[in-house]
C-alpha cells in the first residue's frame, strides 16, 4: 500500500496501480474517453490529466495523464485546479469541433458548461475521436486486425492499407469498446457485417438463435483449447440440457441408492 494525497485528502493506493484508479476509487469524477480497464492505457484523450507535486519538489508542479502515471509514495495530486478545468474545456471544445454530432461528447461538454465550440466545426469531421480503444482491444485479443493508419489529422482506424481487415474475426470487441459508438456493425440473419467484411454467425442447433461468429468460435477453440461442442447450442438451450443431464444423474443416483 502506498499513501498519496488526492485533493488534500490522504488516501491509500495499491502499489503499481495508476493514479486514475486511485482517484476514481475516491469517487472523484475524472473524465476519460480512452481509458478502459481491459486495455493498456495510452493517454490519447488527455482528459484525465491531473496536477502532481511532491513536498520535496518545492512548489514545482507537473501535469500528467493520471491513466498512465503510477502511484508513488508521497505524491500530492490535484484533480480539479482552475488550469486543469480550462484544459479539459479546451480539449472538449476541440472534440466538439471534430465530432459535433456525438452525443457522448455533447454530454461530456455540457457537464463542463460548453454548448458549442469556439473553433470552426470541421466539415468532414466524424465521431471517431482516435482514442485507439478499438485498436488496443484488438491487440489485446491477439488479432491485430485493425490499426491507426496515416498520421496527423488524416489518421483513421482501418485494416491494413485502408482495406477490409483480413485478420478480423468479427468479435465486435472494437464496436463495444468504442466510447462514441462510431464503429458500425450489423447482424442480418446469419451474417454479421463489420469493417466491410461479412462473417457467418453460428446458430443454435436446437432453437436457431444466433450466437457468435464462426471465425471467433474457431479462434477461441484454437487459442484457448475449447471443444467445438461447447459452441453448438445457445445459452438457453444449454441450460435446458444441463437440467436434463443433471436430472438424469439424480434419478440414476436415486435408483442406485434404493
Amino acid at each position: 500500500m502506498v499513501t498519496i494525497t488526492i485533493n488534500g485528502k490522504a488516501v491509500q493506493a495499491n502499489e503499481g496501480e495508476m493514479l486514475l484508479a486511485a482517484i476514481r476509487r475516491q469517487g472523484i469524477d475524472t473524465p476519460a474517453l480512452c481509458h478502459h480497464d481491459a486495455i493498456e492505457p495510452c493517454g490519447s484523450c488527455r482528459l484525465c490529466m491531473v496536477e502532481i507535486t511532491k513536498k520535496e519538489w518545492e512548489g514545482w508542479t507537473r501535469s500528467v495523464t493520471s491513466c498512465l502515471y503510477p502511484v508513488e509514495p508521497g505524491l500530492i495530486v490535484s484533480t480539479h485546479t482552475p488550469q486543469l478545468l480550462e484544459l479539459r474545456k479546451t480539449i472538449l471544445e476541440l472534440y466538439l469541433a471534430r465530432s459535433s454530432q456525438s452525443e457522448v461528447i455533447q454530454k461530456m461538454a455540457e457537464d463542463y458548461g460548453i454548448t458549442h465550440s469556439s473553433f470552426p466545426v470541421i466539415p468532414d469531421g466524424d465521431d471517431c475521436i482516435m482514442c485507439y480503444a478499438c485498436t488496443r482491444i484488438c491487440e489485446e485479443l491477439g488479432c491485430f486486425a485493425i490499426s491507426a493508419v496515416d498520421r496527423g489529422h488524416d489518421k483513421k482506424v482501418s485494416g491494413p492499407l485502408r482495406q477490409p481487415p483480413p485478420d478480423c474475426i468479427g468479435c465486435l470487441s472494437c464496436a463495444h469498446i468504442c466510447p462514441t459508438g462510431f464503429i458500425k456493425w450489423q447482424d442480418l440473419d446469419s451474417t454479421r457485417t463489420i469493417w466491410e467484411r461479412q462473417f457467418e454467425l453460428l446458430s443454435c442447433r436446437t432453437c436457431g438463435k444466433r450466437t457468435i461468429t464462426r471465425d471467433f468460435a474457431e479462434y477461441l477453440m484454437k487459442k484457448r483449447n475449447l471443444p467445438a461442442a461447447y459452441f453448438e447450442l445457445c445459452d438457453d438451450c444449454k441450460r435446458t440440457e444441463t437440467a436434463k443431464t443433471m436430472g438424469k444423474i439424480v434419478v440414476a443416483a436415486q435408483e442406485v441408492l434404493k
Binding site: S44, I129, M130, H153
Partner: peptide, 22 residues
C-alpha cells in the same frame, strides 16, 4: 507540424489543426 503530428493525442492533432486553420 499539422502534417507531421502523429495524431495520437488530441491537443496536438486537433489543437494544432485549429491553430493552423485560424
Amino acid at each position: 507540424l499539422v502534417e507531421e503530428s502523429c495524431g495520437k493525442c488530441v491537443p496536438c492533432r486537433e489543437g494544432l489543426y485549429q491553430l493552423h486553420a485560424l
